[in-house]
Design a protein around this nucleic acid. Structure first.
Length: 212
DNA sequence: GGAATCCACGGTGG
DNA sequence: TCCACCGTGGATTC
């Protein structure tokens, strides 16, 4: 039996509108109440994510960024792109953006993509570059393709939180999350491809720095 | 024993 | 001036 991927018979991607946010669970991360960091997580937010994964993988102009570390030029271990600069914004993502904007009262102007091709692609512990300088910053991520472990830990140490993100899952990080917590996608021996689709407001008009 | 995790490395930029 | 940043690869832990 051939899989849907082999036959190209993917379900048309759609948002399960009636229940788009019904499975959303909110987690307040441990920390000072007056400087709260929180997560909202919904499994299967985007139905038919396989088709969107394939569309993005094929149509987006993926960038391999490089970084100098310890007198060597190394590849950043993932591919990166922004929409619409590197490809058309699929209608499903415009709808997702509108839904998220309505729920959170923000306009998510920036869409950036991170392509984790296999288990050797990863991102080290970090808070988003611009967001961590803001008192509060929303970052919404929809993950398509195969799940990868997504870790969070408080800056300065403490118990960490682990999530599995893929298959159309939604994760929203809010409050002081980018400033008081760090997140990472660790390398794994074996992992199938995943694309993270990140929605962010414009925090600074001149900001051009990539966030992952 | 294999996989996950930890840690040190150091030039750059804020 | 100082410190946070971050990919690699070897060491350590699970």
């Amino acid at each position: 039996m051939k899989s849907g991927a082999q036959l190209g018979l993917f379900a048309r991607p759609e948002l399960s509108l009636d229940e788009a946010f019904s499975r959303l669970t909110r987690t307040v991360l441990p920390g000072p109440r007056e400087d709260e960091a929180w997560l909202e997580h919904a499994q299967g937010f985007l139905q038919g994510h396989e088709a969107l994964f394939e569309e993005l993988r094929k149509s987006v102009r993926w960038r391999q960024e490089k970084r100098e570390m310890y007198e060597r030029i190394v590849d950043v271990p993932r591919l990166y792109a922004t929409l619409p600069a590197d490809g058309a914004i699929p209608p499903i993502l415009e709808r997702a953006r509108a839904l998220l904007g309505a729920r959170y009262g923000e306009s998510f102007e920036r869409i950036s993509l991170g392509y984790y091709r296999d288990g050797s692609d990863s991102v080290a512990w970090h808070g988003d570059y611009v967001a961590r300088r803001m008192p509060r910053a929303l970052v919404a991520t929809v993950s398509v393709g195969a799940p990868r472990t997504f870790l969070l830990r408080p800056k300065g140490g403490g118990e960490r939180v682990a999530l599995s993100l893929g298959w159309g899952d939604l994760l929203v990080m809010g409050g002081s999350c980018q400033r008081t917590w760090e997140h990472a996608v660790p390398k794994l021996k074996r992992a199938a491809p995943r694309i993270a689709i990140m929605f962010r407001p414009i925090w600074e008009a001149h900001d051009q720095s990539p966030d992952y």
